[in-house]
């Protein structure tokens, strides 16, 4: 074992990930949190002709669940580097990050066009959103370079060594789940507040386009390798 052999409970791991979202570690989570918000808010406001808020949870829950599962699963596999399944992912991470950037650009294009072409509205269904959310979840897990919080330090100690990799993967999954739940709860709260305002609905396309722009920036940062500098900038704020 790489670490001192700490014992972490399942609930503790979920809470560790959840609480990290609302702590100083948010500076690190900013690698994906504004972009997740851009995706959820962008897809919520992009439907052409929509003037009134659909129920927030009903409209965003399937996509949020799909994002949570895909992000958490891949995130935990990338942390558990000693698992046989993780090795090819890690070995090809550089290439996968570039492909993730391209996928993010394609999702941005979808949101951009959906807000402009009424003829495309038939495609804007919960099943489409679930697929897009999974694509975004996978892409975010690939691009995210997590900061090593004290709990994640212990989890990585287990997950990166062959003898304890499964236990470590399970804990990393729960830790990622905690962070994802916090992320989704925050996104729902934000949309609930925004969607109550008539002024916001009047500017729905503008909001959706701003979200597209944020996602395009992320996609380009992934393709160009600038994500490392973005992370360095964010964490430099804590010094």
């Amino acid at each position: 074992m790489g670490q001192g052999g700490s014992v972490i409970g399942a609930g503790e791991a979920v809470w560790g990930g959840f609480s990290a979202f609302f702590s100083i570690w948010q500076l690190c989570i900013l690698q994906f949190s504004p972009f997740f918000l851009a995706f959820i808010v962008g897809t919520f406001f992009c439907t052409p002709g929509q003037r009134h808020a659909p129920p927030v949870i009903r409209a965003t829950l399937p996509a949020s669940l799909a994002w949570t599962l895909s992000f958490t699963l891949l995130y935990s596999l990338l942390i558990a580097s000693a698992l046989p399944l993780s090795r090819p992912l890690i070995s090809n991470l550089g290439s996968l990050r570039i492909i993730a950037g391209v996928l993010i650009l394609l999702v941005s294009l979808y949101i951009f066009l959906m807000g402009r072409r009424a003829s495309l509205a038939k495609w804007h269904r919960p099943s489409t959103l679930i697929v897009l959310a999974m694509v975004i979840g996978i892409s975010f897990a690939l691009m995210y370079s997590p900061c090593i919080t004290p709990m994640l330090s212990d989890i990585m100690g287990l997950a990166t060594q062959r003898g304890t990799a499964r236990e470590g993967w399970y804990l990393a999954f729960l830790y990622g789940l905690g962070t994802s739940i916090a992320m989704c709860a925050f996104a729902w709260a934000l949309i609930a507040v925004l969607s109550r305002s008539a002024a916001v609905w009047r500017k729905a396309r503008w909001i959706s386009d701003a979200c597209v722009l944020v996602l395009v920036v992320l996609g380009l940062m992934n393709i160009s390798g600038l994500m490392t500098f973005y992370k360095a900038f964010l964490l430099g704020l804590a010094l």
Binding site: S81, A82, S91, G94, S95, I98, G101, T160, R162, I223
Partner: peptide, 16 residues
């Protein structure tokens, strides 16, 4: 772009 950019030096799993 993705295919051409994918020819970068790749990482290895953590040393055991």
């Amino acid at each position: 772009v993705a295919l051409f950019s994918a020819c970068s030096e790749e990482a290895k799993p953590l040393l055991q």
